[in-house]
Each structure stands twice: as C-alpha cells, then as structure tokens.
C-alpha cells in the first residue's frame, strides 16, 4: 500500500479514535475540538476542489462558509420565534432541511461570484474573490434583522431524525459521516473525466482548450461544487457553536481555510484533514503557551511556504503528486 493511501485511511481513523477515546474518558471539550476539526476539514475539502484541483486561489470562500452558517441561523431563528420568513416560509430545526438550504444557497452564491470572478485570472481573481467576500461581510454587519455585528444565537442545537444531537459524540459522528461522504466524493470527482479535465485546464489551459475543453465552464462547475461543500460545513459550524456572526464571513476565515489546505498538502485527498487536525492541535497548544499565539502560527506558516512545500502529507508521502 502506498504511503499516501495509508494516510488517507489512517488520518480520518485517528480523528474518529480521538473523539471515541475522549468520549470514553468523558472529555466533552476534546470531542468539541475533534468536531471542529472535522467541520473545518469538510470546508477545506470544498476549497481544495477549487484550489487544489482547479488551481483557483479563492480568497473569498468564507462567503460560502458564512452563507451556510446564516442559512442555519435564519431558519432556526424563525423556528424558535415562530415567525415565518417573509410571512410565508416556516423556519425549521431539522438538520437535513437546513443542510439542503445551506448547500443550495452557497451554490447559487458561488455561481454568481464565480461567473463574474472567473472572467479574470491570476492575481485579479484573488482580489475579486476577496472583495466579494468582504461585500457579504459588510452586508451582514449592516443588516440589523439577524443581529448585525452581534450575530445570531440559537437556543438549542437543531434536530436530526432519530439521533439525540445534544450529545457531543453524536454530533461529532454526524459531522464525521458527512466528511467521509465528501472525501469519497472528492476522490471520485478527482478521478472522473470532469476532474481530469479540470486538472488539465489548470496545468496547461491552452492545450485543454485545443482538445475541445472549455476551461471557463469546468472552473465554474468546480467553483460551484466547492462553494456548496463549504456552505454545508458552514451550517454545521454554526450548529456546533449555536451561533452565527459576520466573523464567519471575514477574510481571516478564507485565509485560514487556505492555510489548512497548504499545511496539510495541496490537492491531496487528505490534505484538508491533516491540515485541520494540525491547525486545531496547534491552536490548542499554542493558545495555552501564549496569548500571542498567532505569531507562532505565522512563523510556522512562513516556514512551510518558504521551505517545506507539499505540506505535511508531502513530507510523509513524498512529492510525486504534488502541485506543479
């Protein structure tokens, strides 16, 4: 078995084992950390589709993460206040419905933002995705109905049919299952004709075009799927905290998602999982070490970018499939 395949299986297993052992030791905080890692990994798998496979450096994925979060917040808010949205739509506390709404809303936003941003490339694309993310951030701050700058709290975690979601381990398992599904989806997609065409369009756009592919369309589809997955993660993240605020839309969030992927290993299946686990672990230990822990995070990140390209998985599994 190749080292990377082994990692692809053992990293999620390690995450699962952490949560199970924490449950056995009765450490709910560790379970929450593991849940956070699973959700961030899920968001980053979404971004990895655009960034790793498509080569699209989106610095605005917090927009989709936040839209997912607000989809949860708004639906649950209307359910708990018994006031229908626009006097028509009842709110809901049902997770599957919320997920569906989050995915569709994020996909629609990604379609609009992607259709505009993908007309450009390179550094323009980075700045434009960043600007659209900021636009939603300021909109959320200045729109007072759902809390504005203060954000929106919900009293109780939402329901999943047949599962008591208030138990930390149960909620972890829900998030972990979704992560597993999306990882399989990513793997299938990367090896599918669509995924191969997308990677070809990243490596040599001119050649891809010459054999009859349309890079713009491929990238737009990848961007939409990517946004939808990140939106799902946003709904889960807001549910974990029972809180959604404009912070989920801030560009630091977009930056952190990219950091996760690059720390883990760009374009690799388990890169986001490795990155999210590493990030949460670093946060946990460095935060204990110093209030100014972002300095260390910055230094580590700088070191990885300058000297250790290929990320964590690259170090272990070699660079044979590394980003060009």
């Amino acid at each position: 078995m190749r080292a990377e395949t082994l990692l692809n299986l053992s990293l999620p297993a390690l995450l699962l084992a952490t949560a199970l052992i924490a449950h056995w030791l009765d450490e709910p905080y560790i379970i929450t950390l593991a849940t956070r890692a699973a959700i961030l990994a899920l968001a980053a798998v979404g971004l990895n589709l655009a960034l790793g496979l498509g080569g699209l450096v989106s610095l605005g994925h917090a927009a989709f993460f936040g839209i997912g979060g607000y989809a949860m917040g708004i639906l649950a808010f209307h359910a708990q206040t018994f006031t229908p949205l626009w006097g028509l739509i009842e709110g809901t506390k049902s997770m599957p419905v919320i997920w569906l709404v989050a995915v569709v809303a994020a996909a629609l936003a990604a379609l609009v933002i992607g259709a505009l941003s993908l007309r450009t490339s390179g550094v323009y694309f980075i700045m434009i995705t960043l600007a659209f993310g900021q636009m939603l951030f300021y909109f959320a701050i200045s729109w007072p109905t759902y809390g504005g700058e203060d954000g929106l709290s919900i009293y109780l975690r939402n329901d999943f049919p047949g599962v008591n979601t208030l138990l930390p381990l149960n909620y972890f398992l829900i998030c972990f299952s979704l992560l597993a599904v999306v990882l399989v989806l990513f793997d299938r997609l990367a090896k599918s004709p669509f995924g191969l065409a997308l990677q070809a369009a990243r490596q040599t756009p001119a050649r891809a075009e010459a054999v009859g592919l349309t890079p713009y369309r491929l990238r737009l589809v990848a961007f939409v799927i990517s946004g939808a997955i990140t939106g799902l993660a946003g709904a889960l993240f807001a549910d974990l905290n029972r809180f959604v605020s404009p912070n989920m839309l801030s560009w630091h969030m977009s930056g952190e998602l990219i950091i996760l992927i690059v720390l883990g290993g760009l374009a690799r299946l388990s890169g986001p999982v490795a990155g999210a686990m590493l990030f949460i672990t670093l946060e946990y230990f460095l935060e204990g070490l110093s209030t100014y822990w972002h300095v260390y995070l910055g230094a580590i990140l700088l070191g990885v970018v300058l000297f250790a390209r290929g990320g964590l998985i690259g170090l272990v599994a070699g660079r044979e499939v590394a980003h060009d």
């Binding site: 450096v57 950091i259 910055g298």
Partner: peptide, 29 residues
C-alpha cells in the same frame, strides 16, 4: 522574506504575506 517569493506562484505569495500579517498584528499587540 519577500525576495524569496518573486519566482513563486500567487498562492505562495498570498500565504507568506498572510503569515506576515499574523506576525505583524500580534507583534504590534
């Protein structure tokens, strides 16, 4: 730092300068 980034792709530049923001912000704090 920056001198090492001229030949890199935009992703590396984004990450390295984002790391600089973290260092400068927390350093100033």
């Amino acid at each position: 730092v920056i001198r090492r980034l001229y030949d890199r792709d935009h992703l590396d530049q984004v990450l390295a300068t984002f790391a600089l923001i973290l260092i400068f912000s927390e350093g100033t704090r």
